[in-house]
Amino acid sequence: MTEELIDRLAIRDLVENWAVWRDAADWERFRTVWAPEGRMMATWFQGTGDEFIAVSKRGFENGVNILHFLGGTSIDLAGNRAIAQTKMTINQRAEVDGVLCDVVCTGRFYDFIEKRDGKWLVVLRQPIYEKDRLDPVDPAAELKLDRELLERFPVGYRHLAYLQTKLGFNVKPDMPGLVGAEVTALYQDGADWLSGKPLAR
Rank of each mutant, 00 (worst) to 15 (best):
M1Q: 07
M1Y: 06
T2G: 15
I6P: 00
D7P: 07
D7T: 09
L9P: 00
I11P: 08
D13M: 04
D13C: 01
E16Q: 11
E16N: 09
N17R: 15
W18C: 03
W18K: 06
R22I: 09
A25M: 08
R29A: 14
T32G: 05
V33L: 13
V33F: 07
A35R: 03
P36I: 10
E37V: 07
E37L: 15
E37R: 14
G38Q: 08
M40Y: 08
T43R: 02
G47I: 13
T48H: 09
D50Y: 02
E51R: 06
F52Y: 13
I53T: 11
I53D: 07
R58T: 15
G59T: 11
G63R: 11
G63W: 12
G63V: 13
I66Q: 13
H68I: 15
L70A: 05
G71D: 07
G71M: 10
G72F: 04
G72A: 14
T73H: 10
I75P: 01
L77F: 02
R81G: 09
A82D: 02
A82Y: 04
I83G: 01
Q85M: 15
T86A: 07
T86L: 03
K87T: 09
M88P: 00
I90L: 14
Q92H: 12
A94E: 03
A94P: 01
E95T: 06
V96F: 00
V96D: 04
V96N: 00
G98E: 06
G98D: 07
L100E: 10
C101V: 15
C101S: 04
C101N: 04
D102M: 10
V103E: 13
T106W: 10
T106A: 14
Y110S: 12
Y110F: 15
Y110R: 06
F112S: 03
I113C: 09
E114Q: 14
K115A: 05
R116T: 14
D117G: 13
G118T: 01
G118E: 01
W120C: 07
L121T: 08
V122G: 00
V122A: 06
V123M: 12
V123F: 02
V123G: 01
R125C: 10
E130I: 09
K131T: 11
L134F: 08
P136Y: 03
V137C: 12
D138M: 08
D138Y: 08
A140W: 02
A141N: 08
A141P: 06
E142A: 13
D146N: 14
D146M: 03
R147N: 06
E148S: 14
L150C: 04
L150K: 03
P154C: 12
P154Q: 03
V155A: 10
Y157P: 08
H159E: 06
L160T: 14
A161Q: 02
L163Y: 01
T165W: 05
N170G: 05
P173I: 10
P173N: 01
D174Q: 13
P176T: 01
G177K: 08
L178R: 11
L178V: 10
V179M: 04
V183E: 05
A185Q: 13
L186F: 09
Y187A: 11
Y187H: 13
D189K: 12
D189Q: 14
G190I: 12
L194Q: 03
L194P: 00
G196I: 13
P198M: 04
P198R: 05
P198K: 10
A200P: 00
R201H: 11
